[in-house]
Amino acid sequence: MDAVAMHIANGIVNGPVSAAFAALAAAALTVCVARGRADLDDRLAPLAGLVAAFIFAVQMLNFQVLPGVSGHLLGGTLAAILVGPWVGALCVSTVLIIQCLLFADGGLTALGLNITNMAVVGTAAGYLLVAALLRLLPRKRYALTLTAFVASVVSVVVASQGFVFEYWLGGTTELSLSTIAGSMAGAHVLIGVGEGLITATTVATVAAVRPDLVYALRRLRAPARTAAAAASAQPATSELPAATSATAGAPEPTVDGAA
């Protein structure tokens, strides 16, 4: 079966289900707007724009998985790690809205379905996994890279199953559900690996040079960093010796506060 470029077009899923998911997506985005507004400061505003632009560009890369079966990167995990889950979901949604309105990619009536899959489910799955893994894994630099990779793979596969669920609820044709679920999952594991590699390299580079830009590090690792700095127990692993002068802005006040 065709596993479908991931933007659902008009007419694939019937009207009532599309409407229900449009309402669901609208509700989720309302929450994201309310929570994201607090996050969106002078540093995050341009970063959110760039993350959205990056996702936009990256979604143009279509992976030809099998003849006729293609999918593309989603970017939800990248957004969740760099700008946080709320603004991240808004970034992906913005990409989808603009793609739909300006590039005719994805149906207007399927926008709710697409936003639910890629922006809400994809980002939420990615961020939850990132939060869990960063707590479990040792506080080393490779942990964030590994987390980014694993979370991307899982998030893409989960998002692809979102389509299967919607198709099960309101597909306009009779197709064997297990066939769709299987081919969607299979194709998107491969896409997820591609996405994972891109997310991991991007996040690793950004974390090495500008750790102050990585939301996941600020939120999930900040206490540990101050503790490590205060105790100065492990100078070898204390973050990133070559960090540029630009990092001086964010981390230092916390260090001072702890000392």
């Binding site: 985005l29 724009g49 760039l50 959205a52 632009a53 808004l90 913005t94």
Partner: peptide, 20 residues
């Protein structure tokens, strides 16, 4: 449309050119 979204969209479309 919420201002957060239009703001992200504005930057996104501007930064696409920066990125390219």
């Amino acid at each position: 449309c919420p201002q957060v979204i239009t703001q992200i969209a504005t930057f996104m479309l501007r930064y696409l050119d920066v990125l390219t």
